[in-house]
Structures are given as structure tokens and as C-alpha cells.
């Protein structure tokens, strides 16, 4: 564990807490893409298949349970909670995410570390996470005005993978046999997808204005 990875995990945790706060405090999920939440639930379930077979540390196990539990809870809330579900922007959240699932799965069948069920699903979850934010970014652009909590959620979600890139650089420099190209390349793509969001987020913060994404 290094400071970059810890910072990344904490930032990721903050993004989940911000989203839970938004949903429970405002009883609304306006501006949040259910499709991105469902993709993230799939990412965590397929990545943590080793949850009960490999014990790495208490921290690792607890965080896995938190991410799986929170992502499923958010999907449940947005689908079935009688108050929250009413504020879901159904007509704006129309990204055809089956494409993302299909491409990620085919890529995982071709590019993986070992051809085992766990490894193929792990690679699938890494590729899927890189593109899982797309429905959310499209929804933010379509809904124009971005409320603070939704903007902060996406900001922290993007920042966490940027910390992980620093973690991979650090591990590459300090550990002889650290080669994890699947995560690194995928993480770079993932962070790059946030680039324009970060730019407009910074502009809105600098001008102390509402976050406006160009349609």
C-alpha cells in the first residue's frame, strides 16, 4: 500500500459517500445516470469474485464490501425507491450501454493475464470501468445545469483513478516485477475521458459559477 493508492481509495470512497449523501439528503437522483451506476455495480461484482477466496487484508475486504454494497444500494434506490425513482432523468439517460458491455467482454476474452474465469472477468471489469462513466457524462451534458453534488461526485470519481496512475508509476519504480499493463492503459483511458469534465469543472470553480457543460 502506498500513499497514492490510499489517496485513490479514499477519493473513491468520498465519491460514493457524496452520491449516497445526495440521494438520501435530497431524496433525488436528478443528474445521476442509472446506467453508469449499473455498470459500476457490474464492475465491482465481476472484479471482486475473489472476495471470499483470497484474503489480502481486512482493509481490502472491507473496501470491497463497501463498494459492492453501496453500488447495489444506489441502483436499488434509483430503480425502486418510491420517492427517489421519480426524479430519475429516464428520458435523458439513454446511452446504449450494451455496446460498452459487449466491447469490454470481447476485449477481455482477447486481452487478459490468464485465461481463467476469474482473470477474464477481472480484465472485463477493468475495461468496463474505463468507459462506465460515459452514460453519466452524456447525461450531464444533456441536462445542462449540473447540481453541485452530482458535479462533485463525478469529480471525485475521476480523481481517484488519477491517483491510481500515480500509484502504478510509484509501484513500477519501486517494485521489480510490477507490470500491470491492463490496469495502467485502461486507467489512462478512464482518466482521459474525464479530461474535458475536469476542464469545465475547474473553469466553473475558478469563476465561482455553476458548472455548465457544452451541449
Amino acid at each position: 500500500m502506498n500513499i497514492f493508492r490510499l489517496a485513490g481509495d479514499m477519493t473513491h470512497l468520498i465519491s460514493v459517500l457524496v452520491l449516497l449523501l445526495k440521494i438520501y439528503a435530497t431524496k433525488s437522483c436528478s443528474g445521476i445516470s442509472l446506467k453508469t451506476q449499473e455498470l459500476y455495480a457490474i464492475v465491482f461484482v465481476t472484479r471482486y469474485l475473489d472476495l471470499f477466496t483470497d484474503f489480502i487484508s481486512l482493509y481490502n475486504t472491507v473496501m470491497k464490501l463497501v463498494f459492492i454494497g453501496s453500488s447495489l444500494a444506489i441502483v436499488w434506490c434509483m430503480r425502486y425507491h418510491r420517492v427517489v425513482r421519480r426524479s430519475y432523468d429516464r428520458e435523458l439517460d439513454t446511452f446504449r450501454y450494451w455496446i460498452l458491455l459487449g466491447v469490454s467482454f470481447i476485449l477481455a476474452l482477447v486481452l487478459h493475464e490468464k485465461f481463467t474465469l476469474q482473470e477474464v472477468f477481472w480484465a472485463f471489469s477493468i475495461y468496463l470501468e474505463a468507459v462506465a462513466i460515459l452514460p453519466q457524462l452524456v447525461l450531464l451534458q444533456r441536462s445542462g445545469n449540473v447540481d453541485n453534488l452530482a458535479g462533485q461526485y463525478v469529480f471525485f470519481l475521476g480523481a481517484y483513478r488519477a491517483f491510481y496512475i500515480l500509484n502504478w508509476i510509484y509501484r513500477y519504480l519501486t517494485e521489480q516485477r510490477f507490470t500491470r499493463w491492463i490496469s495502467c492503459v485502461s486507467g489512462l483511458v478512464q482518466t482521459a475521458l474525464y479530461a474535458d469534465f475536469f476542464y469545465y469543472y475547474f473553469i466553473s470553480w475558478k469563476n465561482n459559477a455553476k458548472l455548465q457543460l457544452p451541449a
Binding site: 483470497d54 489480502i56 481490502n60 473496501m63 490468464k114 500491470r180 490496469s183
Partner: peptide
């Protein structure tokens, strides 16, 4: 036990 293919990250 060594974690298969080093998945010690979240």
C-alpha cells in the same frame, strides 16, 4: 498465499 496475478488493488 500469493494473490493470483497480483490483484492486491481495489
Amino acid at each position: 498465499d500469493t494473490v493470483p496475478s497480483g490483484h492486491d488493488e481495489l
